[in-house]
Simulated assay, not measured.
Amino acid sequence: MDAVSSYLQRLRIGKEQPSLNYLQRLIQHHLSFIPYETFSKFHYYNQNHRDIPSFSVYVKNLEDRGWGGTCYSLNVNFARLLQRLGFTCSFVRVLPGHAAIMVIMEGRRFYVDVGYGSPIIRPIELESRHRHVLHGFGEEIIFTNRNEKNFLLERRANGKTFVTKQIHWLPLTEEELKEDICASYQDADHNITMRRISAVRFNGNDCYFLRNHTLKVINYRHIKARHFQEKEQWKKAVAESFQVDEQALEESILFLEKRGVRLFAK
């Protein structure tokens, strides 16, 4: 089976002609079956990689280990898939520290983002109105038009903004993101992505959210949080929730311990 077919099999969706409806379903399936996670980022760093895994390596790790990645790995490889399916794609910087996809269809430009760990469940035609608001899992995601080349992206919960980013609405190639990608691997305390375990996956009406030793299950009725003291219990719960292999979890714990971040007493 080729890499495109394997990727689509992981997404549990077939190959179709490019359309807006197909794009939306691809996004929804991606958020459900491929997690945002830092386990693979630590692994690639340990293997002396400072770049996005190739399409074939990425798909193989989808199959064998259940990995997705952080924003660059997820969005770059999703764009690679879309291009192989016949979509026209570029990238856009979302500062600080993020990148998303610009998909062009019938002269219209859509913002696509499967790498934010948030419920951006459909393509957004940013230029079609001044403001777009998405709701999901206790948060609002707000896109506001600042000018033709800049949009404000906010995430809010309980009426309070907890993340603000700037979308630079200019098409870029994968090559033009090289420095941004390399910077995301910086092994320093100020690069918080490299100092904590994070994972997000959407499963029907539930959002699984992992931050270090705390696992939350968020839905439209309530939030259930489990705070783990025992490493083995944590590994089993996380492997089940995110459909990833336990070896990657052990590697992540050791990666952080070497940098002074200890999640478990033993």
Rank of each mutant, 00 (worst) to 15 (best):
S5Q: 13
Y208A: 03
D180I: 01
A225Y: 07
N48V: 02
P53Q: 06
D2M: 04
H222A: 15
I223P: 04
Y36M: 04
H135N: 03
L177V: 06
E232H: 13
A3E: 12
L170H: 10
S128W: 03
I13S: 07
G97K: 10
Y45K: 13
V94E: 09
T88P: 01
P171F: 15
Q83S: 01
V94G: 11
T214K: 06
W67Q: 06
G204R: 01
N75F: 12
T161L: 11
V163L: 14
D2V: 05
V92A: 15
N145F: 03
I142D: 00
I167T: 08
S128N: 12
L170D: 13
I167Y: 15
F87P: 07
Y45S: 05
R221Y: 14
G136E: 04
N21Q: 15
E250L: 09
N158G: 07
G159H: 07
S6A: 11
L85E: 05
I121P: 00
N147K: 06
G159Q: 09
I101F: 11
F264W: 09
T38N: 06
H98V: 05
D64A: 13
D187S: 05
F209D: 06
H168P: 02
H222T: 14
S56R: 11
L152M: 11
S184R: 13
L26C: 06
E175I: 09
E232Y: 10
L74Y: 07
K160V: 15
P123G: 10
W234Y: 13
D245C: 02
Y185Q: 05
N145I: 01
L126H: 09
F162W: 15
K160Q: 13
L134V: 02
G260A: 12
I218S: 03
S54H: 05
A157C: 14
N21R: 15
L20D: 08
E16H: 04
P119I: 07
N75V: 08
D187I: 03
D113K: 14
Q24N: 14
D189I: 15
K60N: 08
R65C: 02
K224C: 05
